[in-house]
Amino acid sequence: MKIVRLNWTDKACPISCIEILEREKRGYWKSSVSVRKKQKFLLYKCKSKSNAGIIGFGYFTRDGAHTLDKHEIEKYRLNLIENAESSKFVEIQLIELNINRPLVNEKELNDFFGELKNFATQGSTVINYNYQPQAVELYNRLLIKHRYKACESNLSKIDNALASENVKTEIRKEVTHRIGQAWLREQLLELHHGMCQVSDETRQDLLICSHIIPWSEDRDNRLNPNNALLLAFNYDFLFDKGYITFDDDGTIITSKEVRNCFGIEDGRKLRELNDETRVFLKYHRERIFKR
């Protein structure tokens, strides 16, 4: 099923309606677009004839669009929307929403979709077929980022529970590290389609979740999928030890100490590299890589 684009402006949907959606995490969106249950959507914030970014995402909870009864309209303050009583709405389940700080800003959207022009101001509709692969990748990245925030919160709860039982600090660190590392590996396998980002190796027992900035050095990003690479074991070992790294376009850089060794090929590139990962890789090149 294709990802759907929903558009938001304060004129089309007053902020008071959005506030209820943000609190309830489910509700209705004025749209006559044909949708299916569990179909995904990206919610765009629009300004004049351009877009300000994606402010929310989620999925539809019912097939099709329909008119609402009085109770539904009153519960979600939809009477503030023009012609609400005679309009059709789709029922949505929000995963995350933030109108003040877009989850994906205009620059990041251009990185995914190229020059957008009026892409996000053409009404709520299924995203153009040509854009669907990028829309799927973007949706998955948003979903994984949402998951890692939740996992980080759960790890903190586990750590606090162990601390309350007077478990030694070293053991607490080992427990949270193992749980977090296993979770992050699952996300990377999903995000990178079960393939090494360099060699395209697909044998699961040979793939390692490789942190860019080490777990112990950046607590805020220890579960951030953009601070990790999915690498075959030989690339992971050399990357972890600082014998290889990657430049801003993903091209592998090899230390002179291991050049032409361990099956590492010059000219290889990382797949699926984004701006946030580039920032972490800059740290790796400057602080960890052994020239």
Rank of each mutant, 00 (worst) to 15 (best):
177 H>Q: 13
167 V>A: 05
178 R>E: 14
135 A>D: 03
154 N>W: 09
153 S>I: 05
130 N>W: 09
126 V>E: 15
123 G>N: 09
151 C>V: 14
141 R>V: 01
140 N>W: 04
145 K>M: 07
132 Q>T: 11
166 N>H: 09
152 E>I: 03
158 I>G: 08
127 I>T: 12
144 I>Y: 01
146 H>F: 09
169 T>P: 00
183 W>T: 07
131 Y>G: 01
124 S>Y: 12
138 L>G: 05
163 A>C: 06
171 I>H: 06
156 S>G: 08
119 F>V: 06
163 A>Q: 13
119 F>W: 06
174 E>Y: 11
150 A>C: 06
134 Q>K: 04
161 A>K: 11
167 V>R: 04
175 V>L: 03
118 N>Q: 14
133 P>W: 02
144 I>W: 00
149 K>M: 05
165 E>H: 10
136 V>E: 08
130 N>C: 10
173 K>H: 12
146 H>Q: 03
174 E>W: 09
176 T>G: 02
182 A>T: 14
146 H>S: 10
125 T>I: 15
147 R>K: 10
137 E>W: 05
148 Y>V: 03
177 H>R: 15
128 N>C: 12
164 S>T: 08
138 L>F: 06
168 K>P: 00
134 Q>N: 15
141 R>H: 06
157 K>G: 00
163 A>W: 05
133 P>K: 01
180 G>K: 02
156 S>T: 09
131 Y>R: 01
139 Y>R: 00
180 G>P: 05
177 H>C: 06
181 Q>H: 15
129 Y>F: 13
162 L>Q: 09
162 L>G: 06
127 I>F: 14
128 N>L: 05
142 L>I: 03
164 S>K: 14
176 T>Q: 01
167 V>E: 04
181 Q>Y: 13
179 I>P: 04
148 Y>G: 01
159 D>I: 07
169 T>C: 02
139 Y>M: 01
176 T>F: 10
126 V>C: 11
129 Y>E: 13
167 V>K: 04
183 W>E: 02
177 H>F: 15
148 Y>C: 01
179 I>W: 02
129 Y>G: 04
172 R>F: 10
179 I>M: 03
179 I>H: 05
138 L>Q: 03
176 T>A: 01
152 E>C: 04
133 P>R: 00
150 A>R: 11
123 G>H: 11
177 H>V: 08
178 R>A: 15
